[in-house]
Nucleic acid binder design. Sequence first.
DNA 1: CCATAATATCCACATAATAGACAATATAGG
DNA 2: CCTATATTGTCTATTATGTGGATATTATGG
Lengths: 110, 110
Amino acid sequence: MAKGEYLGEFEHVVLLTVLRLGDGAYGAMVRAEIERVTDRSPAIGAVHATLERLERKGLVSSWIGKPTAERGGKAKRHFKIEADGVSALKTAQKTLQRLQAGLSLWNVAV
Amino acid sequence: MAKGEYLGEFEHVVLLTVLRLGDGAYGAMVRAEIERVTDRSPAIGAVHATLERLERKGLVSSWIGKPTAERGGKAKRHFKIEADGVSALKTAQKTLQRLQAGLSLWNVAV
DNA sequence: CCATAATATCCACATAATAGACAATATAGG
DNA sequence: CCTATATTGTCTATTATGTGGATATTATGG
């Protein structure tokens, strides 16, 4: 494959998070979930840039939401994972699994 | 964590491959192993650039080898994984595992 | 209306990924 | 010896990803 056909590290994280959250996840929500689950705190701009790239690649799709009963804020952009996104996750997972087959990281002599 | 403290996607692949191959792996060997195990064919330049980056970060170390009985070639640069390299792999693995907890990619409605 | 909360977007820059051409060096065989 | 060739690393340029901060937008509460 050529450049740009694999999920980058953060793309992988964001895409898995969109899948976890289910259809309708939006930027700020994705950011919060990443923080909750992984102990890292990406900037909101980083999350949006990545979602936009994933959308350009056809791995997620998005639509603008209606205002809700909450305090306020600019209209949310909601995301859902697409079939190609699921495939990309499978490919990434398989690659890592194959490379790790037979290796236990907790039992390495260094 | 801040910028640059995570393994990039290809860094992850290369680092796992160095671990698989054990101490003494070198560029061309790493490249061949990636090809064998994952069906992708990175350019040799890509592999070397990545190994160099991993070394700068202290995740692997290297030394120049002596000529062997084989045909010829420039002296090999051999690599071994360092303790920090193993830690980085553990962190990356844990992050992905947490995000995937409870999700089966083979059972997703899209 | 105004203050403030919630959200997205824009912009600039740093780091990672990648390919391809090139250089180096060893051995084999005449 | 000398040359052809195999094997490997090095250099360079370019594109893709990752990152954070500042700014814009929009809704609600008072």
